[in-house]
């Protein structure tokens, strides 16, 4: 039983650590803020989730608290990256040069038009 738990735990932790590394690599290599945010948040969330749950499997007495940390990271990371993307779009950080579609700016323009019609 313990061997099985150890195998599951070490597998999860290995996958998680590799994803943490790829997240950091994406942070370094991606061309603009929004791409970096995507790499740095998605990959890192999966990586931390795997690593922390894996430690919980290796040491089963800690499983409850590690599950709490993993759930918190799973909830909080998307929220913070969403808020950060919104804020950096608002202070005027440009998209990468090869991108010409900006859905957020288009949606905001539509909203302002509708408000203008209402008045």
């Amino acid at each position: 039983m313990e061997t099985v738990l150890n195998i599951i735990g070490y597998t999860l932790t290995s996958v998680g650590v590799v994803f943490l590394f790829f997240g950091a690599l994406g942070i370094l290599r991606m061309p603009d803020v929004y791409n970096r945010m995507q790499a740095g948040t998605k990959a890192t969330t999966l990586g931390a989730f795997g690593t922390i749950l894996g430690v919980g499997f290796i040491n089963p007495e800690w499983f409850f608290k590690t599950a709490i940390i993993a759930a918190f990271i799973l909830i909080s990371n998307p929220i913070s990256s969403h808020a950060l993307a919104r804020g950096s779009h608002k202070i005027g950080i440009k998209l990468w040069q090869k991108k010409d579609i900006d859905h957020y700016a288009r949606a905001e323009a539509t909203l302002q038009e509708q408000e203008g019609d209402g008045e």
Partner: peptide, 21 residues
């Protein structure tokens, strides 16, 4: 830019949490 640094810091926080565990 500043948001680049903040994104890097956010990533560092998550990595450090995993490292602490």
């Amino acid at each position: 830019t500043t948001p680049d640094r903040v994104v890097a810091l956010d990533t560092l926080t998550t990595i450090s949490t995993a490292l602490l565990v």
